[in-house]
Design a protein around this nucleic acid. Sequence first.
DNA 1: TAGCAATTGAGACTGAATCGCAATTTGACA
DNA 2: TGTCAAATTGCGATTCAGTCTCAATTGCTA
Lengths: 139, 139
Amino acid sequence: MGKAVFKDFLYTKGLKLTKERDEILNEILLTRGHFDPDKLYIQLKNKGSKVSRASVYRTIPLLIQSGILEQVERIERHAHYEKISDNHHDHMICTKCGKVIEFHSPDLETLQEELCLKEKFKSIRHSLEIFGYCDKCNN
Amino acid sequence: MGKAVFKDFLYTKGLKLTKERDEILNEILLTRGHFDPDKLYIQLKNKGSKVSRASVYRTIPLLIQSGILEQVERIERHAHYEKISDNHHDHMICTKCGKVIEFHSPDLETLQEELCLKEKFKSIRHSLEIFGYCDKCNN
DNA sequence: TAGCAATTGAGACTGAATCGCAATTTGACA
DNA sequence: TGTCAAATTGCGATTCAGTCTCAATTGCTA
């Protein structure tokens, strides 16, 4: 389970397993579903932990690197905008060179609508980003 | 084109078409592709405009409401995390109450893979977020 | 158990975005 | 065309999430 993985990760990177990191991981293992760093910090505080906000923020990237956490939705900060046109599209983003491929698939849109219907969800807009490697970078 | 739409929108809302709003819209109509509010503000400054940053930030929501702009992807500033599990899922996010519905569709995944293949894109992970209203909030 | 690199907490700092408010501008109406 | 309330502006202060600095502390290896 998570703890051994993290310990291994730290070891191979020459990093240390401090009690702060341990507390943070424990708390994360206890929580179910999404969380954000600040809430996590408050939770720890309330339980009497002495870990600092900085440590929480510093530990999260390590947990991601070690494969225990993943990043989910992003908060709407530092927004980008675009003029509305009739060509909605989604994005494939190369994590190596940053290339952005715009694509559009009516089938995909239809399928999404069906899924929303099933969940009784009234969809307004969506954002699909596929991360990976573009043709050039994938070799 | 955009200007008339915006004027109409302002009129029906009892809002005023100020020269600042006009300048901002003009600049947006000139720019191609994505932009962010701060860059837009700098652009205007450089052209000798006197509009304030606040006005730029205040005008953008109006342009969105009037259907001229849309918000596109957000830059990597993550606020939410999740433990990695073997059940990948996507999200429907209610923009009213914040509820998050997790869902998974193998068809969707397959379709995405096909699209990537077509673009010669090696997909690693993806993030699909559908924004709208949940059952409760949609009435 | 000594030594030193890694880590910590506190608080200053950052950058995007928002807010409060006095001064200014708009536009409907006379 | 002038008046005037309501809307809007710019400024600077503020918020908010997240990052950084640095002296003090701690984990780990020998």
